[in-house]
Structure formats: structure tokens, C-alpha cells
Amino acid sequence: MTPHSRKILKFKQNKRAYWSTVLFAIIFLTTLFAELIANEKPLIIFFQGDIYTPVFTDYPETVFGGEFETIADYKDPYVRELISKNGWAIWPLIEYHYQTINLALKSPAPSPPDTHNILGTDDQGRDVLARLIYGIRISVLFGLSLTVLSSIIGIIAGAIQGYYGGWIDLAFQRFIEIWFSLPTLYMLIILASLVEPNFWWLLGFLLLFSWSSLVGVVRAEFLRTRQLGYVKAAHALGVKDHIIMWRHILPNAVVATVTMLPFILTGSITTLTSLDFLGFGLPPGSPSLGELLAQGKANLQAPWLGLTAFFTLAILLSLLIFIFEGIRDALDPHMKGDINAGN
């Protein structure tokens, strides 16, 4: 058995991690196709012998025999009637986009869950489930990108410090100490007053202050490993520095890195959530878990808002922790329960 297939097998043996991965994959893949699941436009319209796909293309109302040259509003009962007279339409599972305001509410917004809005609506009459699906997508994507980018920077920075040591290490360490004692939140508030923060602004800005978490462990691992015999041997062979770092030292730092990753990932997701909660995050109107939490706080009479946000976050973060716990154990050769134990 190759080491890799053994690691995969070991991961699968950890039932909790395995099922968490499956569940998370389902949630993440579903939300990736949010436009096809929760949208205010039909997926396919069959109208007078032609096929239309409103999700991907905009059609003016006149195409369906309406009066205006503007883009058709498929939620409008008038347009619906036009289409159903000469054809049919397939709607997504949830007939609301995250921005769609349900104008046909029976009670004032926020309205409680009913058959149309399974998780109710928020204080602007928008479907909570639709916003949730889009919100999870943006949170997870943000968390993953921030984690990947800050890990890359952190590993490179830690590797350089640990490998070369001496002055480089000393100077870099002092720089990190100064840089990361800057108050991130205030910097963000200043940023918010200069530009309108969107996904990329936030990602870039948080990246500036989040890459340090891996530096310590990677640096320590490099400091330790560069003394090992096979690293010296590689030096003596005339192997270039970056190859030595990549091939001989970095694999040793993987377990330590993976141990840290879930904290970075969950940290990234909660950072975005808390910024949104405070109102310094994504632009107004964006679907986000933090904004849903803030609404829940503002509307205590509508518990479905706060509860939805709470359970979503709790489940999402727990799943991620379970998954990484499984990965870490699978990578660690010293863990008990090794399937090769006794050989």
C-alpha cells in the first residue's frame, strides 16, 4: 500500500470526519449553483415553440407579448399569465433571488415561515432561505480564499525565516511583531470610509493582517529540520536552496500546518461574519450570515432570523473542524489506531 492510499483509508475510517466531509461537500456544491436553486427567474421557458433560459440571458417583456421593452419581471402575475397561455416554465426550487422582495406577503415583514418562504422573510421581505444559500456560498468562498492565500504567504515567510535564520529571521520577526500589533478593526473602519468595501477589498485587506498565523509553526519546523542529516547531505550534493526547502523540509511542516488550518478557516469565516454584523463588511444588500445575525438581533420578535443564522454558523464551523481533525490524524504517523499497527 502506498503511503497516500493508506492516508486516505485512515481518513475514511474516521467516520465523523468522513460524513462531515460528505455533508460539507453537498452543502458547498449546492450553494455553488445557487443561481439554479434560488432565483426569481425560471430555469427554462417553453414559449410558442421556442426555448428560453432567463437565468443566463435577459429577455425584454415584449418577447412574451408584454408591453414594456424592459427586462421581463417573471414574478409579475401579468407576465406569468402571458407565459402560461402559450407555453410553460420550469422554476427553481426556491422562487426567490437573494435580492427579491416578496411583495405578496400576507403579514408585515419580517414574516414567519410559511409554505412560500420556508424559513420566513427578513425585515425587508426577502426570503431567508434564498439569502442563506447565497450567504453560505460567499462565506465559504471568502474563508477558503483567505485561508489559501494567507497560508501560502505564511508558509513562504516562515520558510525563509526558519531556513536562513540569523539576521533575516531577527528582522522579519520584529517586523511581524510591529505589523500585527496594528488594530485591524480600526484599519478596516478607515478603509470603509475611503472606499466601498466589496469582496475583493475585504479579502485583500484581511489578508494583510491574517498571514502571520502559520509563520510561527512553519518557522519552528524549518529551524528544526534544517539541522537534519539529509538536509546537510542535500547541501553537500549541491542542491539549490529552494529545492531543499520544498522537497526536504516542507513535508515535515505539513502536519503542523494542517493542524492550524481549521482555525484559520473558521477564523476567516467568522471574521467576515462579524464584520458584516458590525456593518463594516460587504456592501448593503449583499447576502451574508453576519447581516442575518444583525437582523436577528434587531428583530427579536422574529426568532427565525437569529436561529437560522446561529444554526447555520454552528453546523458549518463544526463540520469544518471535524473534517480537519480527520485530515490531521490521517497525516500524523504517530497517531494510535494506525491500520498498519502490529506490522
Binding site: L228, G229, Y230, L237
Partner: peptide, 12 residues
């Protein structure tokens, strides 16, 4: 070239 003392640590 060099051959080290401890063959356990000198091979990756």
C-alpha cells in the same frame, strides 16, 4: 561528497 555517521537521519 560526504557520507554521514547516522544513516537513519541522513536519508529523507
Amino acid at each position: 561528497q560526504i557520507v554521514f555517521q547516522d544513516p537513519f537521519s541522513s536519508l529523507n
